[in-house]
Design a protein around this nucleic acid. Structure first.
Lengths: 241, 241
DNA sequence: GCAAGCAGCGTACGGTGTCCGCTAGTCTGT
DNA sequence: ACAGACTAGCGGACACCGTACGCTGCTTGC
């Protein structure tokens, strides 16, 4: 029993105030993040997003230029989750950097679809949160004692590492999520396939077989911490020189 | 004047040998790489690829399960370009690692569409070249003196850094390429926009303004080398301990 | 009470990946 | 030499995509 939209309904069904809350950019961004978290980047479409907001797909274009711009807004919004610690000075610089890097990784794993976007972002996205985070990170390296010409590079090194590792972790976790198994199950399932593929490269198997029954999440955490420590070692050495 | 395909043509136009070279997986992969290098990942479609091979889009599916699998094949093929140096021992380890990392970055900048794919790849892609490269890299860290449990992590650290930095470099270069300007022109064009956006974050401007007239390519090369050196410092320190 | 502006929408266009069933040529077994 | 099996390639179709365009009807300012 479809309702003819031409007939404007009674006063009761058609209140004086706009029947629907007006669409806002914030609302759209929030709904996009929900959708992305729930279903991943491959399942994001303007039509689906519209449905989730009880709006037509094309209505979104009143508030957002196109899908790419929407993604930019979304990335900046997620950056808003980040709080970069302030380093008091060279003494607690390292702790602050460790926390910042870990928080960034945690953010990327909370929203696995974001890692690839972060890689693309770099200098070209200039949203307020993105810039705040960059600026605060820069302040951190400044407090550590890096000279002006070097703090950018130091920050870039750390960011590249975190983004690089988070991208592959996120891709791997998304794959597992789509498979419907737990990470441990998945790892166990894939082992035969991987063993066969690496038959000619025994070196590839050494690392994995040792910790066959360790929680995979712990392995990833430790791997991340290992690399982070090495990088901070390298940066600290540079500071001392 | 359309030719009726039912009529089998004369002996001359219809040679005994198959009229067209048979499509092969290698051919498809090669054509895909050409197309990707020329137009970028956004312009790759099965139909375009088909046209380039004088074949229907759907014919490709005889040789390749789907587009994702095609991309896996393509990534592995590109890995074939890499030759990982062999480290004779702890003495020339560092030089070898530097060259391997630089080659990897150079590969990613030669094919700017590949960096994001590399991030996704990690453990889940098991093509022959991917595995060979991993194995050879592992051998390099083994020769350096890393114990069995650590060489994976050391390699992972280096790879994450290179992939992370190459991803943002590649995205940035693709953007510039699409704009039709040179890198220097583009940087100059964007400066006002960037300055305005960073008005509240003066720290963001310090680094850039110092080297306003340095070749941007050199800046990127130096930035990469800086981070690489710090990371190798950190790894080397671990070896000494 | 009217004009202007604008949010939301329906429709449509030109693309996408990929499934299906057909054709026609090649290879194999006799 | 011929029948039958196999297979590479294709045309058409389906469901979906991003988004340009022009209409409608509400809200606001005068």
């Amino acid at each position: 029993m479809p309702v003819d939209p031409k007939v404007p309904g009674s006063v009761w069904t058609r209140p004086g105030r706009p029947q629907r809350e007006q669409l806002t950019r914030e609302q759209i961004v929030a709904a996009t993040i929900e959708l992305l978290d729930a279903e991943g980047v491959g399942e994001l479409s303007m039509r689906k997003l519209g449905t989730r907001l009880d709006a037509a797909a094309t209505s979104l274009y009143r508030h957002v230029a196109n899908k790419d711009e929407l993604m930019e807004l979304v990335v900046d919004d997620i950056y808003g989750e980040l709080e970069i610690p302030v380093a008091g000075g060279p003494a607690d610089w390292r702790a602050a950097a460790t926390r910042a890097a870990s928080d960034l990784r945690a953010m990327a794993l909370r929203h696995p679809w974001i890692a690839p976007e972060l890689g693309q972002a770099g200098l070209t996205h200039v949203g307020p949160n993105t810039m705040r985070v960059s600026s605060e990170l820069l302040a951190l390296f400044e407090a550590a004692g890096f000279p002006a010409q070097e703090k950018d590079r130091a920050m870039g090194t750390l960011m590249a590492y975190v983004i690089g590792i988070a991208t592959s972790e996120a891709a791997y976790l998304s794959l597992i999520a789509r498979s419907g198994r737990t990470e441990s199950e998945w790892v166990a399932d894939q082992r035969p396939r991987f063993d066969e593929a690496s038959q000619e490269h025994p070196r590839l198997r050494e690392g994995g077989s040792a910790q066959q029954d360790v929680d995979p999440k712990k392995i990833r955490d430790d791997d991340f911490a290992y690399g982070l420590d090495r990088i901070l070692d390298g940066l600290a050495a540079r500071l001392d020189a």
